[in-house]
């Protein structure tokens, strides 16, 4: 088996006595587009920052390309792309100047790709970055993180401030990267319809715990909401994600009858998300 691009092993992290991540295990392999789904404050950003070595876990380990994430070599750093939630850092620059400086740090920068994206997102290279809107800054940050076709791309709420058309086009670029360059992509979002379209895999995080991490289609096919009158119904054959007095969310359902159940319903990703936090 190939070595995963990014690998979390039993990662725990707390901040000011609050447990943010609790025993997270997650592997990102080439070609995967993993959507990290969770409420605000569930620990998504902390999880991503651990992958970049910005934070170090108290327990467990995070490895990127087989190296510890906080001791990455320069070569491996040029193979990671990252876009933070708040994009800034090139205040005072014009777009062209900022790209020229950024480009100079990456030997494999693809200028054709850069220009294609600049034209497509209608960014004028002579505009000062201070004058850009939040959405435009985000597109610029995406260009800066993707123009060297990183092997591992980490995006924190990447499309939140893009308009729907830019979002669609950006998704196409993500697929190109994942399939043509065999990269792994990990992105956090709480826009379930975007995740549904883009992701090949889903990692669902709640209160710092990774509830599910699997192929999106598999999750959609085998997650069910079971309603019942008697809460003593036997669900031991499945992984129970959430249990309420009269219903439960189960994972691993393959079409059997469940004795004592009133209804077994499939859930869309959004419904699943809402039910889990109900």
């Amino acid at each position: 088996m190939t070595q995963p691009l990014l690998s979390y092993k039993n990662v725990c992290k707390s901040y000011q006595q609050r447990q943010i991540l609790n025993n997270v295990n997650l592997d990102i392999e080439p070609g995967m587009v993993v959507g990290l789904l969770g409420k605000n404050g569930a620990g998504k950003t902390t999880l991503l920052r651990n992958a970049l070595g910005l934070l170090t876990p108290e327990q467990g380990s995070v490895h990127v390309f087989g190296e510890k994430s906080n001791e990455l070599s320069a070569h491996n750093k040029t193979r990671i792309g990252y876009v933070a939630q708040q994009t800034f850092g090139y205040e005072g620059f014009k777009i062209a100047d900022a790209l020229a400086l950024h480009r100079s740090f990456y030997p494999d920068w693809d200028e054709v790709l850069e220009n294609k994206w600049l034209t497509r997102f209608e960014l004028n290279p002579t505009t000062a970055i201070n004058d850009l809107s939040i959405g435009q800054r985000q597109t610029l940050a995406l260009i800066m993180a993707m123009a060297y076709r990183p092997k591992l791309l980490i995006l924190d709420e990447p499309v939140a401030s893009l308009d729907p058309i830019a979002r669609r086009e950006f998704m196409g670029d993500l697929f190109d990267l994942a399939l043509d360059s065999d990269s792994g992509i990990l992105f956090s979002s709480h826009i379930t319809s975007d995740i549904e379209r883009v992701a090949s895999h889903i990692a669902l995080i709640k209160d710092g715990e990774l509830l599910i991490m699997d192929e999106l289609d598999l999750i959609r096919d085998t997650v069910r909401k079971v309603s019942f009158a008697d809460s003593r119904v036997d669900l031991s054959a499945y992984k129970v994600l959430n249990k309420q007095p009269n219903s439960a969310i189960i994972y691993g359902y393959t079409g059997q009858d469940i004795a004592g159940s009133i209804a077994i319903n499939a859930l869309s990703l959004e419904q699943l998300f809402v039910e889990l936090h109900g």
């Binding site: 319809s193 549904e196 859930l267």
Partner: peptide, 11 residues
């Protein structure tokens, strides 16, 4: 396709 529908997109 409708990503919000109950069926997975591939279905």
């Amino acid at each position: 396709v409708n990503p919000n529908s109950g069926d997975p997109i591939y279905k």
